[in-house]
Simulated scan of single mutants.
Amino acid sequence: MKLSRDIVAFMTRLGHEFDRPELLMRALTHPSISTPTRPDNQRLEFLGDRVLGLVMAEALLAADETAREGQLAPRYNALVRKETCAEIARQIELGAVLKLGRSEMMSGGRRKLAVLGDAMEAVIAAVYLDAGFEAARAVILAHWVPFIDRVDADSRDAKTLLQEWAQARGLALPEYLEIERAGPDHAPVFTIEARLNTGDSARATAGSKRQAEQQAATALLALLDPEG
């Protein structure tokens, strides 16, 4: 397979030269442009998420041999979440080589957190299928080490903190309710309400449910504990 200069340059930034470049091309194919003869990256995304998870679990155990499960779990979550995957995708300019449908491209798909995060996981799977687990581990660690070095028990996200706040007081787990969905299908905007069974609640609006839930949890925590 003849590869464009952009793809060759991307492999250099990634740190892996593919023996089967068709795997990389599939990992870069968004569902908006897939056809029966050009499959998208969703199945690879599923696999890459699991490969990333195992590498991060191993790395965290090696980095802190005394940490308890309760300390490791939030660190792990911070390292494998879509936001971290998308940040690394931006660092290696993955968006520049994504294959997108016209509508997705026009709506800013090359910069979208979910699109970049999913594609990064798919690329990890492509490396794994191309050269095995050790190659995938090497690529992952090359890009994730700075994040591993600075992640700690305080990296818990707002939803986790709100859940812990509720459990410490014997309350039911927080609920996240979709209040409104606006905008076109390719660029929806969600309004989410975080609510406790005490009646306390807060709302937030964002371009993904995950972001809106996190922001609503942050707002509710601020109401419950103004001193932070």
Score class of each variant (00 low, 15 high):
T37G: 07
A78K: 08
L113M: 15
P21A: 10
A86L: 08
R110S: 10
A119M: 04
L79E: 05
L3Y: 07
F46G: 02
R20M: 04
A73Q: 01
V97C: 10
H143T: 08
M120H: 03
T66Y: 15
I92S: 07
M105E: 15
R90I: 09
A96H: 14
G15D: 12
M106G: 00
N77A: 13
L98D: 01
E17K: 09
A131F: 06
E93W: 05
I33V: 15
P21K: 00
A62N: 04
L52A: 00
A86R: 06
R26N: 02
E83G: 00
P39T: 14
D49Y: 12
L116F: 06
E83Y: 10
L60Y: 09
I92M: 12
G53E: 12
I92C: 08
P146D: 01
L98A: 04
A126G: 08
L100E: 01
A114Y: 09
T66M: 13
G109L: 12
V97M: 08
E104C: 07
E22I: 07
A67I: 10
I33P: 00
L141A: 10
V145M: 15
R110P: 00
D19I: 05
R90D: 12
Q71F: 02
A89P: 01
V80S: 06
A131L: 06
L28G: 07
H16D: 02
